[in-house]
Design a protein around this nucleic acid. Structure first.
Length: 237
DNA sequence: AACCTACCCAACCGCAGCTAG
DNA sequence: ACTAGCTGCGGTTGGGTAGGT
């Protein structure tokens, strides 16, 4: 199976996998444009990268998603939208492709189950006008060598009400935000459904400081700070 | 057994952002 | 400032397969 450019496409063979593995182990990750040549593979750089990231990379977790992972995925998707790489970054061993595939299946299942009681919902919605919930989509950012963050100029935590005690990040006013996070009802009743956590309507980061704090608190991994979380999401500067 | 349908997952494609020249 | 090349991401497709009729 070869493309018009003579590059092989389709399923990877065991030999190709071995060649790619050996190449990455020898030269390290990156420089994907050199990988096909180095590995002696008749594959395009994208195909090599994808194969490595989604299948060959060590520590990749295969098999069913656990309940915890699903729970985390749902909440992160609610928070970030279709930012699969960011979501996968919070699920150790899972790839963005895994997450995306799972989510598409999950969404389809949801769709099917919703169709069943669609008529009931339509009747209910006819009585109340409901605005769709706005997915929070942080503006994509990338770090450059000249980024203030890489020069030690971190966000002032006082701006978002975060206190640091003995190296740990303590966030006030959190509470179990997830108990209501998946429930649009409250937002609608409060009239908040069109507001955005990050940046808000007027672009002020601290407008939703408390919500940010409680959300981030739940997604911080061990030893990670609030700044790390924002940096990870590309919201830090 | 044969066919159909839905599902799962690996892989491809196109685009946007970044960097170096 | 501009451009070309590279990388990474999200959307989409296609092949394999399990389950139902």
């Amino acid at each position: 199976m070869e493309g018009s450019s003579g590059v092989r496409k389709g399923t990877w063979s065991q030999i190709e996998d071995d060649l790619l593995k050996a190449c990455v182990q020898l030269y390290g990750e990156g420089n994907w444009h050199l990988v096909p040549k180095r590995a002696g593979l008749n594959r395009c750089r994208k195909s090599c990268r994808l194969r490595w990231l989604n299948y060959l990379k060590p520590n990749i977790k295969r098999g069913d998603f656990s309940e915890d992972e699903i729970d985390m995925m749902i909440r992160l998707h609610k928070l970030l939208g279709n930012r699969w790489s960011l979501i996968a970054g919070r699920l150790p061993g899972r790839t963005s492709n895994d997450v995306k595939n799972y989510w598409n299946t999950y969404a389809r299942r949801k769709l099917h189950s919703h169709k069943k009681d669609n008529n009931i919902e339509k009747q209910a919605r006819a009585k109340t006008t409901v605005k769709p919930h706005e997915v929070i989509k942080p503006v994509p950012r990338a770090l450059t060598k000249t980024s203030p963050r890489l020069q030690g100029k971190f966000i002032n935590s006082s701006e978002v009400g975060v206190s640091h005690e003995e190296g740990a990040t303590s966030i006030s006013g959190s509470g179990n935000w997830w108990e209501t996070f998946l429930d649009d009802k409250e937002d609608i009743e409060e009239g908040n459904n069109n507001k955005c956590f990050f940046g808000g309507e007027d672009g002020a980061l601290d407008l939703w400081g408390e919500e940010l704090n409680s959300i981030a608190c739940d997604f911080l991994t061990q030893g990670e700070t609030w700044s790390d979380f924002l940096l990870d999401l590309g919201l830090g500067d």
